[in-house]
Computed example of a mutant assay.
Amino acid sequence: MARPALGPDPTATLAAVSPQTGGMELRIFTEPQQGGDYEDQLRLARTAEDCGYGAFFRSDHYLSMGSGDGLPGPTDAWITLAGLARETSRIRLGTLVSSVTFRHPGPTAISVAQVDRMSGGRVEFGLGAGWFESEHTAYGIPFPDVRGRFDALEDALAVITGMWRTPEGQTFSHEGPTVTVTDSPALPKPAQTPAPPVVIGGHGPKRTPRLAARYADEFNVAFSGMAESAAQFGRVDQACADAGRDPGSLTRSVALTACVGKDEAEVARRADAIGRNLADLRADGLAGSPAEVVERLGRWREETAVERVYLQLLDQGDLAHAELIAAEVMPQLG
């Protein structure tokens, strides 16, 4: 189908573009470092848009994980999202999550603001401390210790959000343990006002919740059980309360591996294609028939009050998978 050259009105709000307001929102999340080029991601993003998913998110990694060879090789997350910004028109776009070790805060503020403008205001910015040491050594990227990475994350959140929110004509400065910014013009500004939504996630019991309470619009717990996720959401709620912030102002989300089929044979085939054990997927992810998955999502909503689910689709070429979930699961979540 023909695609417009430009995205929607930059003044559109998040609520206005969400196709599932009032219910649990489903988003697509993919891991291109496992094997997938730009065209693979474009096809999946366009399918997600056409099917009414809330967003297309991707990981930000430079090395495949597990036994796969990762061919044809990694694609840079923000270069990819810039392309998708021009080749889609409605769906929101983001990372779950970019690693601060790859993304110096000043240039990152520029890059993400530019992609937001290119998309007409559809970008969401996920940022984390990074964890995968092997990809750093494989590409010559420094990998500080945990404390150093969290210091860098806190500095980056302060700088990036500070630059975006600085009024035009004023300058921004920051002095932190890992970066100093002096009299920056803090340009360009993103399309969204005052800034693109910020996503923070993780399992850390202290510093992660505090950073989320201060900077995040959304908090994500990835690939964890309901009890563990509920406990982490509780810690974030407490951090918000301690900071004088309404915990209800922060969206709760989870990421779960999806493996859905019309019948058991199709479910098994999809589990086989991604090299995962079906029993494990049923226990830890979203696996089974559409009815089973709807029931499982209902339990997630009851036990964690989660509002948004990122469906990790590891086989990027299986567009019928995304279409099946949209047709038979999504309508039952309103």
Rank of each mutant, 00 (worst) to 15 (best):
W164S: 04
W164V: 01
R165C: 13
R165E: 15
R165D: 15
R165M: 12
T166E: 12
T166P: 12
T166Y: 01
T166K: 00
T166L: 03
T166C: 08
P167C: 01
P167G: 04
P167R: 00
P167T: 00
P167S: 02
P167K: 00
P167V: 00
E168I: 00
E168N: 01
E168A: 07
E168F: 00
E168S: 07
E168W: 00
E168Q: 04
E168L: 01
G169K: 05
G169C: 10
G169M: 10
G169L: 08
Q170C: 04
Q170F: 03
Q170P: 12
Q170K: 11
T171K: 02
T171F: 00
T171L: 01
T171Q: 06
F172W: 07
F172Q: 07
F172D: 09
F172C: 10
F172H: 09
F172I: 08
S173A: 13
S173Y: 10
S173C: 13
S173Q: 13
S173F: 10
H174T: 01
H174R: 08
H174S: 09
E175N: 11
E175I: 13
E175W: 01
E175M: 06
G176L: 07
G176R: 12
G176N: 09
G176P: 02
P177W: 04
P177M: 12
T178G: 04
T178K: 12
T178M: 05
T178V: 07
T178Y: 03
T178Q: 06
T178R: 14
T178P: 03
V179T: 15
V179H: 11
T180E: 14
T180V: 14
T180P: 02
T180Y: 02
V181F: 08
V181S: 11
V181K: 03
V181I: 14
V181N: 09
V181D: 11
V181E: 10
T182Y: 05
T182E: 15
T182I: 13
D183E: 15
D183H: 14
S184G: 14
S184F: 08
S184T: 14
P185V: 12
A186T: 09
A186V: 07
A186P: 12
A186C: 05
A186E: 05
L187C: 09
L187M: 13
P188K: 08
P188S: 07
P188V: 01
P188G: 09
P188E: 06
P188L: 05
P188W: 03
P188F: 02
K189V: 01
P190Y: 02
P190T: 11
P190N: 05
P190M: 02
P190G: 08
P190H: 03
A191G: 15
A191V: 04
Q192A: 05
Q192L: 03
T193Q: 15
T193E: 15
T193A: 14
T193V: 15
T193G: 10
P194I: 07
P194Q: 04
P194G: 06
A195W: 00
A195T: 11
A195H: 10
A195M: 05
A195D: 07
A195R: 13
P196E: 05
P196Q: 06
P196N: 06
P196S: 08
P197H: 06
P197K: 06
P197G: 08
P197L: 09
P197D: 10
P197A: 13
